[in-house]
Design a protein around this nucleic acid. Sequence first.
DNA 1: TCGTTTTCCTTTAGGCCTAAAGTATATGGC
DNA 2: GCCATATACTTTAGGCCTAAAGGAAAACGA
Lengths: 159, 159
Amino acid sequence: MSDSHKQMLRLWIELLRASNIIKKDLDARLRAEFGQSLSRFDVLSALDRAGNEGLRASEISQFLLVTDGATSQLTPHLVKEGLVERTPCPDDRRSAFFRLTPSGRKLFSRMAIRHAEWVSAKFTALSAEELETMNALVRLIELPDRAMTSATKTEEQAS
Amino acid sequence: MSDSHKQMLRLWIELLRASNIIKKDLDARLRAEFGQSLSRFDVLSALDRAGNEGLRASEISQFLLVTDGATSQLTPHLVKEGLVERTPCPDDRRSAFFRLTPSGRKLFSRMAIRHAEWVSAKFTALSAEELETMNALVRLIELPDRAMTSATKTEEQAS
DNA sequence: TCGTTTTCCTTTAGGCCTAAAGTATATGGC
DNA sequence: GCCATATACTTTAGGCCTAAAGGAAAACGA
């Protein structure tokens, strides 16, 4: 194996290790403080960003980078807890829109603040410049067509 | 939320996104080409590195950063497939040593080569210098006591 | 309009993970 | 030696994920 391969492997292992540890930490904290997993937080986050129109199930999947099956299993909990509202789509009876309820939006606000604090704590050792450098470098990583989902696919085909 | 918090969040999201995508990609390729998950590859990797002495279950867990329960569920498959050998520990009947069998070592060699190729393909856009920079920056991330496991714990207590 | 195909979503089986409870063995204090 | 505690591991319930199959509705072509 070439030196360059070794260097890349070392970096990948460090990257995986760090993201793994941080992810578990965030998940544990969200569960402890809010009784919600990181995945459910991500759903709320997607819906919060989407605003009043809400999102269809497949759009949530794209945001989370998971299959529709995963979303199908995730959403009912949030609906049952009254954090998310599910409205049948008027012009497509296979589909539905998901929106945050007021209570969901409120909870998400609180969660987002804590989440940002926890994330920031991991990166305090890095200067603004180092953060920027790292962000730029991460974007150089070759991802399978920017993790192309059907949404981005249609965008690109349109262009 | 401060600008610095936003910058950190952006970086974290990119980092998580990249590692997530790469992990899924590697897992899918290992399954397609070798019929083994990334987790099982990691076990083989740990045992390969350990050499002839092998590892106890808890040491595998530490290497993979998972609980002992996960290791307990992972190893039987590999043993059944004849890739890993499990030898009762002579001086502690609760424990056992896991070692690669010749067939396991052989399979791992082939897997490791492909794995390194796939990983390298992700990082081709980065120069040796950029890889080094990124590696250094990743190591600045604040991990809960370097993901302290009981092994590192005892080391530190000894010092 | 009718049948085929596509699309959107759900369901299911199974992998991997955790936390927590359970089992068996080892260890240390008496 | 004996007992309490600690340790090594396994088991179990349940969360999240995937791939694949299923169901219902939409879209399309003849």
